[in-house]
Design a protein around this nucleic acid. Structure first.
Lengths: 190, 190
DNA sequence: TTGGACGTCAACTAGATAGTTGGTTTACAA
DNA sequence: TTGTAAACCAACTATCTAGTTGACGTCCAA
């Protein structure tokens, strides 16, 4: 029934190698041969397991987002701490941030892509948690606040070069940046 | 002395076609043949004018940034209005935002790239303007504030899909988003 | 023990792509 | 008018790349 040789390990090795490759070069820049070589696996296995390069990219993104969700607690009653935690997480996982950017650039349309229901659900839960923590009903305003908070946490990790241009060597002082961010959010949400 | 045929027009046509192509597909995804075809010019002209694909990309970025600088006044005494103006500008120029993202993804190193002096200068001027408007001396804190404000204005344009995921159709209500943003900044900078 | 289904891989292919080349046209100076 | 330097372009090439194929190895059920 399961005449497998090592499918789980092969698949996992491919996913990890693909995450590095896609984070570094994006979908268009990524090379299937490099991914297979890094994984120590034959190229054909990519097609056997995932179908094609794009589907492999989707699998990588979904895995990375699952990691994020499982490791960062909901905003709850302390949105300031939430931003701080998110900021740290993104700084420690630049690959995830880069994947999100490549993905954002991959689509130009106005419409929401199919298969995004899981993410809509995840975000709705965060918004609900944020609203509950603030003793409000979930509303459009809460959703916008969540969007803004996400941006505050994500932006420094998205544009490290700009950080270096504006902040110089000061860009390495992550604690100072996080403190400024938390002060900013504290005041704004007062 | 100037046996030109139409070099300026050719060059401009190439730059415009390249901006569209690069904004849509990035450096790796962009096709030199498509750029030439869109510009109605022979492919070889790209190499004559710009050297290669990467240098053409640099030229496109620089032109777009010059446009931005010339059209958006310094933050000065009204940083809240500055964020609002920036937000609108980015929303009306999605190509610029995408170019900035592709560019940010093109470099992984910690070091500032050579040839960025002009941008450092531009940002320093903005920081100085912001500090002066608030009646302070330019400081690390001012620079961080500028960085954060830039992020607030840029983020919604960078991740429109995420906006749609979090906000649903509400994402189209740009006025509401800008109002929330200005309220946010007003409270934070109080 | 054995048959077959599935995992693995080396080698292959068809098509695309950045960059080049050699010749032609254009505009101006003398 | 004519020499010439630069703009222009059609056609070419060497290389690269995503995806395929067919042969072989591995595991398990019967």
């Amino acid at each position: 029934m399961s005449p497998k040789v090592s499918t789980a390990a092969t698949r996992a090795a491919l996913l990890e190698a693909a995450r590095e490759e896609f984070a570094a070069y994006g979908v268009a820049g990524a090379r299937v041969d490099r991914i297979a070589e890094r994984a120590g696996v034959n190229k054909e296995r990519i097609y056997g397991h995932f179908g094609n390069k794009e589907k492999l990219f989707d699998a990588v993104i979904n895995e990375a987002l699952d990691d994020l969700t499982s490791q960062i607690a909901l905003p709850g009653a302390d949105p300031v701490d939430y931003v701080a935690r998110l900021t740290d997480y993104y700084r420690r996982h630049p690959d995830l941030v880069r994947l999100l950017m490549w993905e954002a650039l991959n689509y130009r349309g106005q419409e929401l892509l199919p298969g995004q229901e899981a993410r809509v659900e995840r975000c709705a839960r965060k918004a609900a948690s944020l609203a509950e923590g603030r003793g409000e009903e979930p509303s459009k305003a809460t959703a916008r606040t969540l969007f803004t908070l996400t941006g505050l946490a994500l932006f420094p990790a998205m544009m490290p070069q700009l950080g270096r241009i504006i902040l110089g060597d000061e860009a390495d002082d992550h604690d100072a940046l996080r403190d400024q961010l938390t002060a900013f959010v504290t005041a704004a949400l007062k």
